[in-house]
Amino acid sequence: MSNVSFIKILFFYPTLYYQNCMDAQSGDCFNNDWSNRVTNCAGNLFKGRFSHSDQISFQFNNILGLKFRFSFMVGKFDSWDPGDNYLQVLLDDAVIDTFTYGPYQGTSKCFNSDYPEYYDSKSYVFNLPIGRNSLKLTLKGSFDEDIDNESWGAKKFTLEILEPCVEFYSDCNFQGDVWRICNGNQTSQVRNIPFEFKSILIVNGIQVKLRDPKYHGGQTQTYTSNQYCLSSYQFPKYHQNA
């Protein structure tokens, strides 16, 4: 086996790609992800409060995967009227869910003492087309009264990659032609590689193992983070027409 050239990819998933505003002591609630507006409801930090047609969004770029799970906690504050008040979840500007709550649903915790608050955890699994490496998630409200009577907030944002990918590029700094491997532990012999690669885009939690007897003394090299320019490590053989 010492003379065999190969690429082996070990996918450890699901991979936690992103999280924000996770608990009451979480300083990241105050950064500009989603919104720079933060409220405190009985010691719980939320992005918010929001009302009327307020919406918050976050754009994810250079994200490698086929299947994802987006989760968050919504805070229903004060009096929501079902049918008139609702919150929507959008993926790339397309609605994937619409939900509402009753005006007396929950327990009084903060703000207007005449109406209760309710916390609810939401989770969505979705796929991206092969070749896509960006997505936008949006929370959008529809309310007809002011913020002191009906509003919402959100926290504990997480995005997990359920089926991750690795991308190999023909030039440094993720430029040129791209070759993508997704889904499951895979080993590729050198004859299946479409071009010599010089950079690798790797999601956290993935191991990329490379070996060729003509480089690094024939020792297997393991990478767990992005490689921006592998000028000293290129497979000498590849399939031009792969």
Results as ranks from 00 to 15, higher is better:
R69I: 08
L90H: 09
R69P: 07
T100N: 12
N62D: 15
M73W: 04
Y104R: 10
V38P: 02
Y17W: 14
M22D: 12
N61E: 15
D81L: 05
V38R: 01
W34V: 00
D54M: 07
D84L: 14
N85L: 03
T98G: 08
T39I: 06
Q59V: 13
L90P: 00
N61V: 15
V95G: 02
G75N: 06
I96K: 03
D54Y: 04
N36G: 12
F46L: 14
I56G: 00
H52G: 04
R69L: 12
T39F: 05
K76Y: 13
F11C: 07
F30C: 03
G65V: 09
Y101E: 06
P82S: 14
L16R: 14
Q88R: 12
F99G: 07
F30E: 06
T98K: 14
W34T: 01
D84P: 00
S35I: 03
G75Q: 01
Q19T: 11
A42D: 14
L45Y: 10
Y18A: 11
L87I: 11
S51Y: 02
K76T: 06
I63E: 00
D54P: 04
W34E: 01
K47Y: 14
F77W: 10
T39R: 01
F77C: 02
C21E: 05
N20E: 06
Y18F: 15
S53I: 15
L90Q: 09
Y17S: 10
Y13E: 08
V95S: 08
N61D: 15
V74D: 00
F72R: 01
A94M: 13
I96P: 06
G83C: 11
G83N: 10
G48S: 07
R37Y: 00
